[in-house]
C-alpha cells in the first residue's frame, strides 16, 4: 500500500497522467471541432452568390419535394446555366473541366444523419418548414456549413410545437428509427 501511494506522488507519474488526460481531451475536442467544420469540397461553391441572384433552393435540390433526400445537382444542371455565363472565376474553370471530362462532381454531403436516423425532407417541406430553419442562413455561406447541435432533442423541440393530435405520430420512435 505504501508503495502505491509513493507511486502516485511521484512527479513523473503525475506528469504522465496529466499528459494522457491532455491528449484524450485534445482528441475529443478536435473530433468535436472536425464535425462542426465544413468538409473540403471539390469546388468552393458560392451558395451566397446563387441565393443572392434569386436562385431557389429547390431548383438545384429538387428531391425535397418528393423524397427523403434533397439531392445534389448533376453537371448538366450546373452547365445548363453556366455554359451561357462567362467563366471568370477559377472555380468555374474546375466545373468546365468536370463537364469536358463528362464526370460527376464528387460533392461531399454536409447535412448528414447517423445511420440509425431516417429523415425525410418531403413532409417537412410540405408542411412549410423553411430550408433556413434547419440548414442555417445559406445566403451568408459559400460552401454549405454543418449546423451545430442538431440532435434528437432539437428535432422534438420543433415537433412539440405542432398540433397535439399529431404529436403521437411525431414523437413515435418508428418515425425516424428503424
Amino acid at each position: 500500500m505504501d508503495k502505491v501511494i509513493a507511486l502516485t506522488k511521484r512527479p513523473a507519474f503525475r506528469i504522465g497522467v496529466g499528459l494522457v488526460l491532455l491528449v484524450l481531451l485534445a482528441g475529443a475536442g478536435g473530433g468535436l471541432y472536425l464535425t462542426q467544420t465544413p468538409p473540403p469540397q471539390p469546388i468552393q461553391f458560392p451558395h451566397n452568390l446563387h441565393v443572392g441572384i434569386g436562385a431557389q433552393c429547390q431548383y438545384c435540390h429538387p428531391g425535397v419535394a418528393w423524397g427523403p433526400t434533397a439531392g445534389l445537382p448533376s453537371i448538366s444542371k450546373c452547365w445548363g446555366c453556366h455554359q451561357q455565363v462567362q467563366k471568370k472565376s477559377p472555380e468555374l474553370e474546375k466545373l468546365a473541366a468536370y463537364v469536358s471530362r463528362n464526370e460527376a462532381v464528387p460533392w461531399v454531403p454536409v447535412a448528414i444523419q447517423p445511420d440509425f436516423v431516417h429523415f425525410n425532407h418531403r413532409p417537412h417541406v410540405a408542411a412549410g418548414v423553411a430550408c433556413e430553419s434547419c440548414h442555417g442562413d445559406i445566403s451568408k455561406m459559400t460552401v454549405a456549413e454543418p449546423q451545430p447541435r442538431q440532435n434528437m432533442g432539437w428535432c422534438l423541440d420543433c415537433h412539440k410545437t405542432m398540433a397535439p393530435e399529431n404529436f403521437t405520430r411525431l414523437s413515435d420512435c418508428s418515425i425516424c428509427h428503424y
Binding site: 440509425f116 403521437t168 420512435c173 418508428s174
Partner: peptide, 15 residues
C-alpha cells in the same frame, strides 16, 4: 423495446 402508438407494432430502437 417499445410499443408504437402510431403504427400499433412493437419497435426495437437500435440506438
Amino acid at each position: 423495446a417499445v410499443h408504437s402508438e402510431e403504427e400499433q407494432i412493437n419497435l426495437q430502437v437500435y440506438n
